[in-house]
Design a protein around this nucleic acid. Sequence first.
DNA 1: TAATTATAACACCTTTTGGTTTCATTTCAA
DNA 2: TTGAAATGAAACCAAAAGGTGTTATAATTA
Lengths: 108, 108
Amino acid sequence: MAAENYDVFQAIADPTRRQVLQMLAGRNLPISKITSHFQISRTAVVKHLRILSEAGLVTSEKIGREKRYHLKPEPLFEVKDWLGFYEQFWDNKLTRLKYVVETEEETD
Amino acid sequence: MAAENYDVFQAIADPTRRQVLQMLAGRNLPISKITSHFQISRTAVVKHLRILSEAGLVTSEKIGREKRYHLKPEPLFEVKDWLGFYEQFWDNKLTRLKYVVETEEETD
DNA sequence: TAATTATAACACCTTTTGGTTTCATTTCAA
DNA sequence: TTGAAATGAAACCAAAAGGTGTTATAATTA
């Protein structure tokens, strides 16, 4: 991969990376274990892990010949903060029903 | 742009698109007005708007020769929901049990 | 020691992204 | 009614993203 500074928003944009994060929730796993859950190559997984690492969402620790990855959810705070701003623009009663009702009020 | 189904996570990954969303918070603006806030070309802005539109984050309405864009924050609920799962890892309180930590099929 | 396991480091490839320029069409307004 | 304003649409481009395979190195284990 080319870019060296990955943003947390970019990091979570990829579905595979979101899956990796979920896999690391609650348990720490080595690369091989993570890779075995995907169809893509280990090299590809490692690249995703590097992006997550650059975004601060995971850390790693070498244990013997393994490299264990840990979830670090702290950078997600930024996303939460960002979302907080937009909450004032949605109607909680409607969004509670999640995608069931599509409103079409156009307020100028 | 090639892809036709933009995910909300992908849509908000780009800083320019996040700025566009912020510009549309509270007021509806035509393309020309949005473009004037950026250095990039109108065409580039339109492409960002299409991506936001495909993600359901904006809608547009034609008024005369203008095309006014409106913020539709509802899809952001998916992001909030997703974040909710990770909050239990930075707090100690359990937020939701909607996403259950996947119990591994492989025992070490 | 030798074979195996886990990872690292490259080189390389294809598609997508984010941008450009150019030209056409529609609408408003003097 | 004619020109400016606002948008649409197409062709094109460089770089980044996401993937591959190969080879090398370090740690384990039979």
